[in-house]
């Protein structure tokens, strides 16, 4: 990560625990990743690996309790926002860092019109008048390509299709021109064709305004298309971090390798798709040493004892595997 410009947003060794009645569960176990202006960072991993939790920690929308940030930093332009007072963080998430969610229907308030929900950003944070805010809401709806925006501004969320609702979420998120947009599986709940439209829209909007985009997904196809960098997460840790081309051509972690191998390819007929063996670990009782060892083809005795740190394996490419070099050579 050395040649990159100073990152806009960086997570540094973030540890988040969920407090249970009997034991605590570490949802994030020292997570680090960063994103620069104009860059798209994809975070991939199986469900439950901590992708969303890391984003919620940034936005300050973790359920506290039971969640608790135990250690680490979240740095915006170099300063740790976890140390900021709540009021300042609030302004930050309104104006600099925004987020959209997987389920746009439940994420929009059912009893207010979409216009009101977009206009609220301008009214609360910019102190604009009712009518000015409404005008800007229409502008935002047009910007996210909602047809007939002027007429639809007074409609309620349930009157829109899934794709249109996600556009509204995007309109709310981008209304104050933030620098970072976190998209938490924004297309998972949508039809395939609509998925492509939303991804295209996000990409366009990003290009227009030098937005840093953090895209949380488990769709490697999308990653290959839009991401600049990829952070692969497993069991609450980033296990590999690399530019997208490097990751796809020479993965340096057995887990990434497994993910790559499970992507179906055109022209590859007749052979069974290899799937990752086993199931992801339960976070309440994680395996000792490297969390991936029970499913790993490269496992050695050391993997049971020592947690491999995320370390650079080549320029701008890190992996958390004791045998990363061997993994890269094998590919």
């Amino acid at each position: 990560m050395s040649l990159q410009p100073a990152p806009l947003l960086a997570l540094d060794d973030l540890v988040v625990e969920f407090r249970g009645r009997r034991h605590n569960v570490a949802a994030l176990n020292g997570v680090s990743y960063s994103v620069a202006a104009g860059e798209t960072l994809a975070i991939v991993g199986e469900s439950g690996c901590g992708k969303s939790v890391s984003a919620q920690a940034v936005m300050g929308i973790l359920d506290i309790p039971p969640a608790r940030i135990v250690a680490g930093q979240i740095r915006y332009r170099g300063t740790d926002i976890l140390a900021w007072p709540e009021r300042r963080r609030r302004t930050l998430r309104a104006t600099k860092i925004a987020m959209i969610f997987q389920d746009a229907l439940s994420s929009l308030n059912p009893v207010y019109t979409v216009g009101e929900q977009i206009a609220e950003m301008f009214r609360v944070h910019r102190g604009e008048s009712h009518s000015a805010a409404r005008r800007k809401a229409i502008e935002m709806m047009e910007r996210v390509r909602i047809p007939d925006a002027r007429r639809r501004v007074g409609d309620y969320p349930h009157q829109f299709s899934g794709g249109m609702r996600q556009r509204i979420m995007i309109a709310i998120a981008l209304s104050l021109e933030p620098e970072v947009l976190i998209a938490d599986e924004p297309t998972t709940a949508l039809d395939v064709t609509v998925q492509a439209q939303i991804m295209a829209l996000l990409h366009e909007l990003k290009e227009e305004s030098q937005l840093a985009l953090i895209l949380i997904t488990h769709d490697l196809g999308v990653v290959a298309e839009v991401a600049d960098r990829v952070a692969v997460m497993y069991a609450g840790q980033v296990v590999e971090d690399a530019p997208v081309r490097t990751l796809f051509s020479s993965p340096a972690h057995p887990y990434t390798q497994g993910l790559m191998a499970s992507i179906p390819r055109l022209g590859q007929r007749g052979s069974r798709l290899p799937a990752l063996r086993g199931a992801p670990p339960t976070l309440s009782a994680p395996p000792t040493g490297c969390p991936f060892h029970p499913r790993c083809a490269y496992g050695r005795p050391v993997c049971l004892d020592r947690l491999p740190p995320l370390r650079p394996v080549e320029e701008d490419h890190s992996s958390a595997c004791h045998f990363a070099e061997e993994v890269m050579a094998r590919d």
Binding site: F18, V25, G48, C49, V53, P65, A67, L283, S284
Partner: peptide, 22 residues
Amino acid sequence: MTEPVAVDQAMAAGQPAVLAEI
């Protein structure tokens, strides 16, 4: 398994892995 509330909250926060055993 006698902590349905905690599990419920964990689920709301996007932690389905903890649920595997239930």
